[in-house]
Design a protein around this nucleic acid. Structure first.
Length: 813
RNA sequence: GCCGGGGUGGCGAAAUGGCAGACGCGGCGGACUUAAAAUCCGCUGUCCGAGAGGGCGUGUGGGUUCGAAUCCCACCCCCGGCACCA
């Protein structure tokens, strides 16, 4: 059995890239080259994509299937620190190891167009992308509360914080107020959401993005503050107002108090002298809390009264203002109107601090006075205790109350997104320096394009610290530069950019790696993009896949490309587990691909991976399972290399062959690889039934059908069958010969059908009848069956259900 | 709590309104062999039956239908994501 691919025929020449008549861009998510080496999960992902690409190639298309390395980032750097090898040495050796491993997997990679994000020739253009956003006003440095990982010593994007903890190391994240570079992805929230309606992606991935963008509709409502008047206990309204965002303006009449985030800027103003001490203490404790503990939903509500009051614009009532850590500064306005009757959190808070709870929505079978034992948040209901809005359905009241307030200048409708701007600054070493220079005279100056790349210097001590300042800030001879505008003393930005910026545009680089004077060539891009098929893991639903869409939209808007969605089709693949549980080093159940490829060969390994479960759902890897595909290929090998007959395909086998080609073709197109393989096994079993000798015409098409899964074996058998040129030959602009077998739909079905007879819904007989048999003849044949007669027991036929070519159900009684 | 995905033989899984368990693994029996391995052939959901045949069976309970793994309602469990998001 041949084991290794002949990679020479896979790469596309510059001429082919330029002139391909029927191009197919087959993309898979480029790997992060870890020190542990290629994971079986990588191979699973890549093989599924490769099978698809090889299938397209055999259908005659010119397939571009590049690969690369996403090698910058905190993960690599942390690992380098751990083992004490500098990333500039570690990464090249990891890349070399990955390359060696990838070359054994039998994928048709185009190694001539590989990319590596840590190569200055690549990140030169990552920096260029940054400058495009900067020029478009979409990159801005601003002071904002950001997520700080105290273990990695850097800020993180919102997308990299999982349940309040750092995605990489699991440490609870802190909030810090820092000045960072942000990309204004929120400006594209609506379009990112809208386009999800038409792009052809796995539904689950689209859903994940939808949830992440998190559009909600509501209103911004102003609550005027009420300050105590001198002497008496009254308060005077006026001056300031607290703005709240709510998705339920219809419950305004039930807002009996307000809650501000402890960090809210108005707290200082509202706090009265007698409450000051308590408020200050609470704020201090809230600030010290990490995000994981703060965001726990099951902890008891805490809070403190500020002593201040606001006016509910609907009722005119003065309501107390509290602070509590369940209100977050980062969402909405950092302040809420609390409606304890119809929000469970507010209800709990009101119960604990004995604040008034008012019902303003009555569900079915309820009225204005029905007692509340928890917040009523039901889907149906009409307004009560709400003045002129009583009796209105709450959904209508949402608009009605907003409109009413808007007329008085107290509110406006607002759409909110959960999505935050993308923080791309990292106070770390292992990434592309952000191409900005700060000059006392000229301010913030972008590095001129001709000065790119801003190379990452070799720094012996690249360890991050807790200062919030990048390690590059310790290298004066690197950061001290002349201002590109005035020539005066200036200083480089010392933060590097997020790894996800590297991967947000790599697919644009692949077809243009031959160009050194531009990030991507316009005509090359037009020929190959958008990507025809992108296959990858779901874990990037809201990271890479969202960022890549955003960057593509920006480039499109700048007129640099001619499409706003980078991936026309995206399919997620499933996860692979080992013997029922997740693979992990501590469990000791990690599948090391090298060992399996050594023992079974790449073809068997690939085919088993594709066979063990539905590709888009994943499956369970079991060592014993490998012998299935192994046996299949042994038999195929045996049949083809044995004594071949030269008779034509006839009878049932002919039908089976056409049916198999049809099924395999359709299944591969739909990524149902497991059933495609099963169909081929079934067909080979039929060919070999009873130890029968195979005819050339029976097995030759099968050799092509297995080729996407088992390219090496297929290639050898193809040669054995007497072909001079290989199945997968050098790709040309004209495309590839369409060697994929055709099927005749009419011949894919048999002349006779296995017809089932049921009596009262239970199967009582099977009959072989000619295809297309009519109801009357089928009934006649059915009644002739002894077992049918027995179960009818002489009773009268009340109804006959006839399903053509399938079944006849006799209802008796 | 919310949003996805799922629950079918000893195991991985097929079947998306019409014969449940294709295909594969494992197991059992047989052939070949001095023997074993490999290979090949047959059987393999479960219960009753000598057999023909029959009963039961797709997480649980109900419903729709001539007919439900598949559709509907309620619930239980597993996996993934999001989560004091106002």
């Amino acid at each position: 059995q041949a084991r290794w691919a002949d990679e020479g025929t896979n790469a596309l020449s510059e001429e082919t890239l330029r002139d391909a008549e029927d191009p197919f861009f087959n993309l898979m998510m480029f790997p992060y080259p870890s020190a542990e080496g290629l994971h079986v999960g990588n191979i699973y992902a890549f093989t599924g994509a490769d099978v698809y690409g090889r299938y397209q190639r055999l259908r005659g298309r010119t397939v571009f299937e590049p690969i690369g390395f996403d090698a910058f980032g905190i993960h690599s750097e942390n690992f380098a620190l751990k083992v004490g090898t500098h990333p500039m040495e570690l990464i090249p050796s990891n890349v070399a190891n990955f390359t060696r491993q990838l070359k054994r997997t039998g994928a048709q990679y185009d190694w001539d167009h590989a990319v590596n994000t840590t190569d200055p020739a690549y990140y030169k253009w990552t920096q260029w992308i940054f400058l495009q956003l900067y020029d478009a006003g979409l990159a801005e440095k601003k002071e904002a509360p950001v997520n700080w990982c105290p273990s990695c010593n850097t800020v993180l994007a919102n997308e990299q914080v999982i349940a309040g903890a750092c995605e990489r190391c699991g440490t609870p994240v802190e909030q810090r107020l820092l000045s960072q570079w942000f990309f204004r992805i929120t400006a594209y929230a609506e379009r990112l959401l809208e386009n999800l309606e038409w792009i052809d992606w796995s539904e689950t991935t689209k859903k994940a993005q939808q949830n992440w963008i998190g559009r909600s509709e509501g209103a911004l409502i102003r609550f005027p503050t009420a300050t105590p008047t001198a002497g008496r206990g009254d308060r005077e309204e006026g001056g300031d107002a607290i703005e709240v965002y709510t998705t339920r303006p219809d419950t305004l009449y039930g807002a009996t108090f307000m809650v501000l985030a402890p960090e809210h800027p108005m707290v200082e103003k509202l706090t009265t002298a007698e409450q000051r001490e308590e408020v200050t203490e609470y704020r201090r404790r809230a600030a010290a809390m990490d995000l994981v503990s703060r965001k726990k939903t099951d902890k008891e509500k805490t809070g403190v009264f500020t002593g201040g009051y606001c006016v509910n614009p609907a009722t005119g009532a003065q309501i107390p203002v509290w602070i509590a850590d369940y209100v977050l500064m980062e969402y909405g306005t950092g302040a809420i109107m609390a409606v304890p009757g119809h929000d469970q959190r507010d209800y709990e808070f009101a119960e604990k601090f004995e604040l008034p709870i008012v019902r303003v929505v009555a569900g079915p079978d309820e009225d204005a006075d029905s007692p509340l034992t928890e917040a009523y948040v039901g889907d149906e209901g009409e307004l009560v205790n709400s003045g002129r809005f009583d009796g209105m359905q709450w959904r209508e009241a949402k608009t009605a109350i907003t409109d009413w307030l808007e007329e008085q200048g107290l509110a406006e409708p607002q759409t909110h997104y959960r999505l935050h701007d993308w923080c791309i600054s990292r106070q770390r070493y292992w990434g592309p320096p952000i191409p900005i220079i700060y000059c006392d005279a000229c301010g913030t100056v972008p590095v001129p394009e001709e000065d790119l790349p801003v190379e990452l210097p070799y720094v012996e001590d690249y360890k991050p610290d807790a200062s919030g300042i990048s390690p590059l800030a310790r290298v004066e001879k690197w950061y001290a530069v002349a201002c590109p505008e005035c020539g005066g003393e200036a200083r480089r930005e010392t933060d590097v950019s997020d790894t996800f910026l590297d991967s947000s545009w790599y697919f644009l680089r692949y077809p243009s790696t031959g160009f050194h004077d531009r990030a991507f060539d316009a005509t090359r891009t037009e020929k190959w993009l958008p990507v025809d098929m992108y296959i990858g893991g779901e874990e990037h639903s809201v990271l890479h896949l969202l960022y890549a869409r955003f960057i593509t939209m920006v480039l499109d808007e700048q007129g640099l490309i001619g499409f706003e969605e980078p991936f026309e089709r995206f399919r997620k693949h499933g996860l692979i587990i080992k013997e029922g549980s997740k693979m992990s080093k501590s469990r000791g159940n990690v599948v090391v691909p090298d060992d399996y490829i050594e023992e079974w060969g790449a073809d068997t390994f690939r085919t088993y991976l594709m066979f063990l479960g539905p590709y888009q759902e994943g499956g369970d890897f079991r060592d014993e399972g490998l012998s299935g595909p192994w046996n299949f290929f042994s038999r195929l090998w045996d049949s083809v290399t044995g004594d071949l007959g030269e008779d034509p395909v006839e009878g049932e086998l002919e039908q089976a062959l056409h049916a198999t080609i049809k099924k395999v073709t359709e299944d591969i197109a739909g990524l149902s690889y497991n059933t495609a393989i099963a169909a081929m096994m079934e067909y080979l079993n039929a060919v070999r039934e009873g130890g029968r000798r195979a005819n050339r015409a029976e097995v030759e098409p099968l050799v092509v059908l297995v080729a996407p899964f088992a390219p090496h074996i297929a290639e050898e058998l193809w040669q054995h069958l007497g072909h001079d040129a290989p199945l997968f030959r050098g790709q040309t602009p004209e495309g590839n010969p369409a060697l994929w077998p055709e099927y005749d739909a009419a011949r894919a079905v048999a002349d006779t059908v296995e017809f089932v007879v049921q009596v009262n819904g239970k199967v009582r007989a099977q009959m072989e009848l000619p295809r297309g048999v009519d109801e009357a003849s089928a009934k006649e044949a059915a009644l002739a069956e002894e077992n049918v007669q027995r179960h009818m027991d002489g009773k009268e036929i009340r109804k006959v259900i006839f399903v053509p070519d399938r079944l006849l159900n006799l209802v008796v009684g």
